[in-house]
Amino acid sequence: MNEPLVDAPDTFPAQAFSFALAGPAGKLEVTTDAADPAEARRGTVVICHPHPLQGGTMHNKVVTMLERSLRESGLDTARFNFRGVGASEGEFDNGLGEGDDLAAVVEWARRVHPGDALWLAGFSFGSFVSISNAVRLHADALVSIAPPAGRWDFSSLRTPTCPWLIVQGEEDEVVDPQTVYDWIDSLDAEPVLVRMPETSHFFHRRLMDLRGAVKHGVKDWLPPARQG
């Protein structure tokens, strides 16, 4: 039986750490990790996972590679389980309540890291939630992996104007790549698009390529060093 999670800390943990954060529908399960002090930047990223009703959790392999990529880039990271997933309380709310879950984690991250740049990132459904809330949460940068255009209503979203990286597999069997490209073409913003050939939705055998694409894609947007 798993031990109950401790309450959210008042400072950002220096090592990988899991805790329970008070959220809008009950406790949220959150896991953080800190960048190597020698590489650390004054930035924190909150990462959203795939669809809760289709097995998505913060432990998804694409999410964990996304986390690793951004942490290796110097950002402190926070992943969390949406309501009703893992140890998070509540029930699935079709993307709306999940946006409020994200807002709760962002509020905690800003409280413990005041002055940090706040980035949002997500995979699949998680990218829909992070894109949907990027404007209201004043994200400083956005990373979207396989955004599910055509599966969720992207037409009414407020378009972020912050730096924005989108990575899309060209052989995605869940999200139609052409629908994603057409949606990007319709935007007023100009996100950086990386099209990965021979790549499925879950980046089978391409996770290290995803790592490289993310690290290369965000390197010019990174905030200043945390120390020095």
Results as ranks from 00 to 15, higher is better:
159 T>V: 15
168 Q>G: 08
145 I>W: 02
131 I>Y: 05
82 F>Q: 04
126 G>F: 09
71 R>Y: 03
161 T>S: 15
128 F>P: 02
77 T>E: 04
166 I>T: 11
161 T>I: 12
64 T>H: 01
156 S>D: 14
92 F>S: 09
50 P>L: 05
113 H>C: 15
60 N>C: 07
156 S>N: 14
106 V>T: 12
107 E>G: 11
53 L>Y: 03
131 I>E: 14
141 A>W: 00
159 T>L: 05
60 N>F: 05
76 D>N: 15
69 S>T: 10
48 C>V: 02
157 L>N: 04
49 H>R: 11
52 P>L: 13
116 D>P: 02
102 L>N: 02
152 W>K: 12
90 G>K: 09
87 A>T: 02
153 D>P: 07
53 L>P: 03
92 F>I: 03
73 S>W: 02
147 P>V: 08
172 D>W: 07
47 I>C: 00
58 M>E: 14
164 W>Q: 10
143 V>I: 14
142 L>Y: 00
146 A>Q: 08
53 L>E: 13
169 G>W: 11
127 S>V: 00
91 E>I: 10
50 P>H: 08
77 T>V: 15
71 R>K: 15
100 D>G: 08
65 M>K: 09
167 V>S: 09
157 L>T: 06
49 H>G: 13
80 F>P: 10
143 V>P: 02
148 P>W: 10
84 G>W: 00
107 E>K: 15
83 R>Y: 01
163 P>C: 14
52 P>H: 11
168 Q>D: 00
76 D>Q: 02
83 R>G: 05
89 E>G: 06
97 G>W: 07
65 M>C: 11
127 S>D: 08
66 L>K: 09
156 S>I: 11
64 T>A: 10
83 R>Q: 03
87 A>F: 08
84 G>F: 04
123 F>D: 01
132 S>E: 05
